[in-house]
Design a protein around this nucleic acid. Structure first.
Ligand SMILES: [Mg+2]
Ligand SMILES: [Mg+2]
Length: 615
DNA sequence: ATCCTCCCCTAC
DNA sequence: TAAGGTAGGGGAGGAT
């Protein structure tokens, strides 16, 4: 993966860094890609088989099966000598396995020479726990262990090859490099002058951001830093290349490959839905600037308001199947049909990921993040509609114009979603009227689009109301979650109606509870009470029943635990808050990265292109 | 104590 | 064929 980050410092100018990193197991963090973990697992398995096949093809089946590293499973961290590619060949031909990701259950030997502090601590912990436990031990060794073991024809004792640096301070290496149009800090200018890098490409006088640019080789590269780079030009040559890229089994060609398409960065971002979604803050800043210059009297520039109060309501507005709806405005003949937005949906085996599915498609089981081919098997009439990012952006601007005109305070969440605060609004009927008007305006002013709105006394209930409304009532829904027995009531204790609603909410629907938190809650509950309803949906009620405040704080950390604890009781003190300017900007690509270790110039120009995207 | 770094997690 | 990004909050634990 290649990445660039620029963040605000303590007023001393901006730090800017870029680099490449090898991946840690993405299966641990499927978060947004429920189906993606499975996809990766299949891909990794194919890769293991292929690596073994390759090894057997080149040195023979017997040689591999009787190899000295049979039963050994290696994972390489950071830059090594010999490089990762060479180690892979050596290991697989000696009967060992070579993992792309640090799967803790599989890997027996971590190979490296220098480790970043964080990684070092992590490994130290892993070594400790595995030493005492019933599982196989985990070794952290230098690359020489592999070479010597192969030479000796058997795995040598690991202790002679321990990595001393694992316990010493070793920060991630930062390689200073110039970002076009930016003034490097003195320190970095000095560092750069010692490097053999091309001069900055001059760039317009506008946006004279004070920033320094640097390339990091993450995952603990050589800790000698710039001296190392200065003295060893060959090292510099394979900068940014020791990534997950060469481990991918297949070669991408033509425009899909970073090494064959000189406009790869531009082309990739022009097509990436995640880039588009992720660029919301940038889009939003642009929209805000435009609205401000229009001088519309509106809720711009208001201060955040503490919640709750009896005369305040929170609306949560979320567009229904946003991408599909916008795309269908130009294709009215497809309305009412099962439609999905994705790239090139041809064939039953398409691996294009669906970004948005129409409600008709959802009724047939089609979901976002599904491969198009899979969806096609569920619903053969499914129609593919291409992305139209600029149309989404235009719709977004209209949407926010409506928000700012109708609400007292706006907190943008995403391209199609926001929290609105209604102040001086005592009756829920009034809040419902405003919500209806907003939905009506969206219907009229954004062609083909409907929105769902949730109404509550705080963000938590507003959000849950939208979710529930969409699920039970479908698109264009409006749903209220307040305590009707105490119409101006809020806080604790929560009314009985709200409480029993909350009881039945899946814990995963609570803000901040994702894939990992749910698993931790599950595990903790299983460990103490042995209650093992494994495939049951975990509900708020059972989590509330099982944990006290201390328990949650211990499990999730003090801030997260405390917040969840309050959410379980319907309490949410997060204010509706206008979002300010970003504290950092970044750009990264983890798709289609292929470089040869001889292509330093290509890598360099790739990184420069990438740095220009982060703005 | 507080800061800093390197993560992990979450949301869209 | 197919486009696995972006930003923020927060925790662990060593450095100061
Ligand atoms: Mg939506
Ligand atoms: Mg949304």
């Amino acid at each position: 993966m290649m990445n660039i980050v620029e963040r605000k410092n303590n007023g001393l100018g901006d730090a800017f860094s870029a680099g490449s990193r090898s991946a840690t197991a993405p299966s641990r963090r499927p978060v947004a890609f429920e189906s993606f973990g499975e996809y990766m697992a299949v891909k990794e398995q194919k890769l293991r088989v292929q690596q073994q096949d390759d090894a057997m093809a080149s040195v023979g089946v017997l040689q591999v099966a009787r190899g000295p590293l049979w039963g050994v499973c290696v994972w390489v961290d950071g830059r090594t000598d010999p490089p990762r590619d060479a180690l892979r060949t050596l290991v697989t031909q000696a009967g060992g396995r070579f993992e792309t990701y640090l799967h803790r259950e599989l890997v027996t030997h971590v190979v490296g020479t220098h480790f970043a502090r964080g990684r070092a601590m992590e490994l130290r912990r892993a070594v400790q726990t595995r030493r005492g436990g019933a599982t196989r031990p985990l070794y952290v060794v230098k690359p020489a262990w592999i070479l010597d073991s192969i030479r000796a024809g058997r795995p040598l004792p690991e202790w002679q090859y321990g990595v001393d640096e694992i316990s010493r301070d070793s920060r991630q290496t930062v390689l200073p490099v110039s970002r076009p149009g930016c003034v490097p800090s003195e320190e970095d200018a000095d560092a750069m002058s010692r490097l053999d890098l091309p001069p900055s490409v001059p760039c317009g006088p506008e946006t004279p951001i004070e920033s320094n640019t640097s390339l990091t080789e993450e995952e603990s590269a050589a800790s000698e830093s710039s001296e190392h780079w200065q003295s060893d030009k060959m090292e510099c040559t394979d900068f940014g290349v020791s990534t997950s890229a060469p481990t991918m089994a297949y070669a991408l060609r033509g425009l899909l490959s970073s090494r064959e398409n000189p406009h790869f960065v531009r082309d990739f971002f022009a097509q990436s839905r995640l880039h588009f979604i992720g660029s919301f803050r940038e889009t939003y800043e642009t929209i805000l600037r435009r609205l401000q210059s229009d001088r519309q009297p509106s809720s711009l520039d208001r201060m955040p308001q503490t919640l709750p109060r009896r005369d305040r309501f929170v609306l949560h507005v979320d567009m229904d199947a946003f991408f599909v709806s916008v795309s269908l405005a130009k294709r009215p003949h497809l309305r009412g049909k099962p439609v999905a937005v994705c790239h090139s949906g041809t064939g039953e085996h398409s691996r294009a990921e669906i970004s948005s599915a129409s409600y008709e498609a959802r009724a047939r089981g089609v979901r976002a993040n599904m491969f198009f081919g899979e969806a096609r098997r569920l619903c053969p009439e499914l129609v593919m509609v291409p992305y139209d990012f600029s149309a989404y952006k235009a719709a977004c601007e209209v949407l926010y114009r409506i928000f700012f005109a109708e609400a007292d305070l706006v907190e943008g969440v995403s391209i199609d979603e926001a929290y609105l605060l209604l102040q001086h609004c005592s009756e829920v009927e009034r809040a419902e009227e405003i919500a209806s008007r907003i939905r009506q305006r969206i219907l009229q002013e954004i062609e083909g689009c409907t929105a769902s709105i949730g109404i509550g006394r705080n963000k938590l209930f507003a959000r849950l109301a939208t979710k529930y409304g969409k699920e039970k009532l479908g698109k264009g829904s409006q749903f209220v979650l307040i305590d009707r027995a105490h119409p101006d009531g809020f806080g604790s204790p929560m009314g009985a109606a709200l409480r029993s609603f909350l009881d039945e909410v899946p814990i995963r629907a609570i803000p901040g509870v994702g894939w990992s938190t749910e698993a931790r809650l599950r595990d903790a509950m299983k460990a103490t009470s042995g209650s093992s309803q494994d495939n049951e949906v975990l509900l708020v009620a059972s989590v509330r029943e099982h944990f006290n405040l201390e328990g949650l704080e211990k499990l999730l950390g003090s801030a997260n635990g405390n917040r969840l604890y309050r959410f379980l009781d319907g309490m949410d003190s997060r204010p509706v808050q206008p979002i300010g300017p970003r504290k950092s900007v970044s750009a990264q690509i983890g798709w289609g990265i292929r470089f040869l270790s001889t292509e330093e110039d290509k890598v360099r120009s790739f990184m420069i292109d990438l740095s220009l995207v982060a703005r």
